[in-house]
Simulated assay, not measured.
Amino acid sequence: MSTEQTSAPADGYSYTLTRTLDAPAARVWQAWTTPDQYAQWAHAAPGSVELDVRPGGAWKSTMRTPDGAEFPLTGSYVEVDEPRHLVLGMDIPGRPDPTLMTVNLAEEGPRNTVLTLTQTCDTAEERDMAEQGSGMLLDGLETFLKDGRRAE
């Protein structure tokens, strides 16, 4: 598995994270869209994950940081094209419109999937925090797919 990270402030405060995962796209999709699997790799508090994976469907999760702090997250799915493309709207307190995160999956051969995650934020500080959180998520996903080949 490999990692590439780039920040692109030219189009706002954006970042893109790219990972090559040792799993077919359908397996990565399943890990991202099945509540019990998502909870195992996404640093979620037990019992906090709900995913209604369809356009307009709601999602929620409470992320737990390594120091034990918890952050409730909510939003909805904007675009769903199984098993290749997700656009998630993330609710931000005090903002009328959600922040969008895009996840694209592209298979490279029978076992490798390139995951590209992009997000544009309003400020450099928000981008840096979101990028750090997304990096932690993808680290967990890589570990889950590599070490946690759970029964499907």
Results as ranks from 00 to 15, higher is better:
Asp36Trp: 13
Asp36His: 15
Thr20His: 12
Gln40Cys: 03
Asp36Asn: 12
Gly47Cys: 06
Ala26Lys: 03
Val49Ile: 08
Arg27His: 03
Trp32Ser: 09
Thr34Val: 13
Leu51Tyr: 13
Trp32Glu: 12
Thr33Leu: 11
Pro35Arg: 15
Tyr15Gly: 08
Tyr38Ala: 11
Trp41Ala: 02
Pro35Ser: 15
Arg19His: 12
His43Trp: 10
Ala45Arg: 15
Asp36Phe: 11
Gln37Trp: 12
Trp32Ala: 11
Gln37Asp: 13
Val28Phe: 00
Trp29Met: 07
Leu17Thr: 05
His43Ile: 00
Gly47Lys: 02
Asp22Thr: 04
Thr20Cys: 06
Pro24Gly: 05
Tyr38Ser: 01
Gln37Arg: 15
Ala39Gly: 10
Ala31Cys: 09
Ala25Cys: 07
Arg27Phe: 04
Ala42Leu: 05
Ala45Pro: 04
Gln30Glu: 14
Tyr15Phe: 15
Arg27Ala: 05
Pro24Ser: 07
Leu51Met: 13
Thr20Gln: 12
Ala39Ser: 11
Gln40Pro: 01
Ala44Cys: 11
Pro35Ile: 14
Asp36Val: 14
Ala23Thr: 08
Trp29Asn: 00
Gln40Tyr: 00
Ser48Gly: 08
Thr20Glu: 12
Ala39His: 05
Tyr38Arg: 06
Ala42Phe: 07
Ala26Phe: 00
Gly47Thr: 06
Asp22Asn: 12
Gly47Phe: 04
Ala39Phe: 01
Ala44Asp: 07
Leu51Gln: 14
Val49Asp: 02
His43Ala: 09
Gly47Trp: 01
Asp22Arg: 11
Ala23Pro: 06
Ala26His: 09
Tyr15Ala: 10
Gly47Arg: 03
Pro46Gly: 04
Ala45Phe: 00
Val49Leu: 05
Arg27Met: 03
Ala23Lys: 07
Ser14Met: 12
Leu21Trp: 05
Pro46Tyr: 03
Arg27Gln: 08
Trp41Tyr: 09
Val28Trp: 02
Ala31Tyr: 08
Gln30Trp: 06
Gln37Thr: 08
Ala31Arg: 05
Trp41Thr: 01
Thr20Ile: 14
Ser48Leu: 10
Trp41Ile: 02
Ser14Asp: 14
Tyr38Phe: 15
Thr33Gln: 10
Pro46Met: 00
Val49Glu: 05
Glu50Gly: 09
Ala23Phe: 06
His43Asp: 04
Tyr15Thr: 11
Ala45Cys: 02
Ala25Gln: 03
Tyr38Gln: 08
Val28Gln: 00
Arg27Asp: 06
Thr18Val: 15
Val28Leu: 01
Gln30Ala: 14
Tyr15Lys: 07
Gln30Asn: 11
Glu50Pro: 11
Gln30Ile: 00
Gln30Tyr: 06
Thr16Asp: 03
Ala42His: 10
Pro24Ala: 10
Gln37Ala: 11
Gln37Pro: 03
Trp32Tyr: 13
Arg27Gly: 01
Ser14Lys: 15
Ser14Leu: 14
Leu17Ala: 03
Val28Glu: 02
Gly47Glu: 04
Asp36Met: 11
Gln30Leu: 13
Asp22Leu: 05
Gln30Gly: 06
